[in-house]
């Protein structure tokens, strides 16, 4: 309830073969829960199910509730579930500031106000003055930070992290973990992290649920 993300008996199957679950858990606002498991255990499919992008080849059971609201049947854009992917997926035709403004809701009106919000987010990410830059000129770590700020500016009700540190090199990874988890807690949204890296789980600091592959190998 009150702002939490609740996964209630969710299980996924492909062609009758169970892939994951049944799984029940609740993530409180500002908390980070980690799902750990080997690749192929279906954890990314679970995130796709929560965000409403599950491949139609899957059959799903169970419910997902965000702030007490059942998400079933809602298109992805109506769920208010923000996802940070392994790839930053910055839009290459927009500037860095344009990407952030893209995340900002339309209810924030006026070009001045929007630009100020974007600039504040950039400053928060240690990227003050980067608004006019082409995203292609940014380093991997900078791009990842912009992607997170873009997701948070959209004011999501929950945050899903789909192996977001997998493509960063080791030195950058620690920095990025600290940055992401601090921002997620500050935003006060329930955050669900899936990873196969124990270091991620440790840095997240919250409860860890270890998944085992149910698929025959």
């Amino acid at each position: 309830m009150n702002g939490s993300l609740r996964i209630d008996g969710v299980s996924l199957a492909v062609a009758g073969q169970p892939v994951i679950g049944p799984l029940t858990l609740e993530v409180a606002p500002g908390a980070v829960v980690t799902l750990m498991g080997p690749s192929g255990c279906g954890k990314s499919s679970l995130l796709a199910f929560i965000s409403g992008c599950l491949d139609p080849a899957f059959t799903a059971r169970g419910r997902v509730l965000l702030d007490g609201r059942d998400l079933e049947g809602l298109p992805p854009e109506r769920r208010r579930v923000g996802t940070l992917f392994q790839d930053d997926l910055l839009f290459p035709h927009l500037s860095v500031g344009g990407n952030l403004a893209f995340g900002l809701p339309a209810s924030v009106r006026g070009r001045r106000t929007r630009a100020e919000r974007v600039e504040a987010a950039l400053a928060d990410a240690g990227l003050a003055g980067f608004a006019a830059r082409d995203p292609a000129t940014l380093s991997g770590g900078q791009r990842a930070r912009v992607a997170l700020m873009r997701t948070l500016l959209a004011e999501p009700g929950a945050l899903l992290l789909d192996e977001p540190f997998g493509k960063l090199d080791a030195a950058l990874r620690d920095q990025m973990r600290a940055f992401v988890f601090a921002r997620a807690r500050a935003a006060g949204v329930p955050t669900l992290l899936v990873t196969h890296d124990a270091g991620d789980a440790e840095a997240a600091g919250g409860p860890v649920i270890v998944l085992e592959s149910t698929r025959e190998v």
Binding site: S51, C53, E77, V81, T83, F85, L89, A154
Partner: peptide
């Protein structure tokens, strides 16, 4: 991928 990102930001 880009579409998924935009949809998760709330775009129709």
């Amino acid at each position: 991928g880009l579409l998924r990102a935009a949809r998760s930001l709330g775009y129709g």
